[in-house]
Design a protein around this nucleic acid. Structure first.
Length: 323
DNA sequence: CAAGTGATAAACAAAA
DNA sequence: TTTTTGTTTATCACTT
């Protein structure tokens, strides 16, 4: 699998959703969010500065990468001439861009302190104490993938985990042992020598073995899918990596034209409105596309979610219909 | 029930 | 010498 030719801009992962929508808290205290107001590639030309500013300022932590995605550099990445930098099938940007993975973050990171302080014993405990649903392999994978060079020393892996999963701020030190144990034992990770000339600090750098990357990504995707499904129906939409049914080929972002008129021309409405969400199918650029968006959303493609076109997504949509 | 997987603990050696 | 990093072994819990 050729995954290294398309790389994400550094720090394309963001621990927080851009959404200011109401949060949904799962039974284990993790939070998932309804669809973000602007979640997936807003057209560089369709996203007004006012909207971008609005979204940016609404982010609880406006320094996060997702917010950066609305700024010049990242938006530019979505332009046709730069599309190849964004079309990595295995990109993890969906994990953050729409709050699809890390929206499962504990509230502690998403809720203003004042709100946390007002919580009463009758409410669920502060979710910072709840353990993330991801395996250590997944955590390590995410950390490494989020690094500019796709490699990190152990210390930075610890740091990434702590920064993104507050549970580990207060967890006992054993998890670090587990991280090292996992790095050592798992075939998915490879130890590489640091550049001695630039080496500061102990140890080696760790990277993801390319041959195991799809597997790790799949595990991560399934984990997220499972937890978001269990925690909140409306998080059923799969990450907006555009996949063809065989999971192998990327449907380039270019194939989706974010022009409202064109989509509306060819789309048919799917009866999901009972769930509060609407599924829209349309055929475009020789691809069968479908979207899910809140029922009260105007058909403005700046606000829609692009879903995977694979069978899994279809199945998810089917289960939505069953409700 | 057995096998596989992941988490955790612990011991130990090597390196910084 | 201390701390960190990396490896290995063992055990337990859970899932398939």
């Amino acid at each position: 699998m050729e995954s290294s030719s398309h790389t994400l801009p550094p720090s394309s992962l963001c621990p927080l959703p851009v959404s200011s929508s109401p949060q949904q808290t799962s039974s284990n205290g993790w939070v998932s969010l309804p669809l973000s107001p602007i979640s997936f590639p807003p057209s560089p030309t369709s996203l007004s500065p006012a909207t971008a500013e609005s979204i940016h300022s609404s982010s609880p932590l406006s320094h996060c990468a997702a917010s950066h995605c609305l700024e010049g550099q990242s938006v530019q990445c979505l332009s046709p001439e730069n599309i190849s930098d964004q079309d990595d099938l295995t990109c993890l940007s969906w994990l953050h861009q729409r709050g699809n993975l890390l929206p499962l973050q504990p509230l502690a990171k998403m809720t203003p302190l004042a709100q946390q302080e007002s919580y009463t014993p009758s409410q669920p405990p502060p979710p910072a104490s709840s353990k993330p649903p991801y395996s250590f392999s997944s955590l390590i994978f995410m950390a490494i993938e989020d690094s500019p060079n796709k490699s990190l020393p152990v210390k930075d892996i610890y740091e990434w985990i702590v920064n993104n999963f507050p549970y580990y701020r207060t967890a006992t030190g054993g998890w670090r042992n587990s991280v090292r144990h996992n790095l050592s034992l798992s075939k998915s990770f490879r130890r590489i020598q640091r550049d001695k000339s630039q080496s500061v600090g102990k140890g080696s750098l760790w990277c993801v073995c390319p041959e195991y990357r799809p597997t790790l990504l799949e595990v991560l995707r399934k984990t997220h899918s499972y937890h978001s499904t269990n925690s909140n129906l409306i998080n059923k939409p799969e990450p907006p990596c555009l996949l063809t049914p065989d999971h192998e080929e990327l449907v380039t972002i270019e194939s989706v034209d974010y022009q409202q008129e064109e989509v509306c021309e060819n789309m048919e409405k799917d009866p999901l409105s009972d769930s509060g969400y609407i599924e829209l199918h349309y055929y475009q650029s020789n691809q069968y596309q479908y979207l899910v968006l809140p029922g009260d959303t105007e058909l403005d493609l700046e606000t829609v979610e692009i879903l995977q076109l694979d069978a899994e997504a279809q199945e998810a949509a089917g289960s939505l219909l069953d409700l």
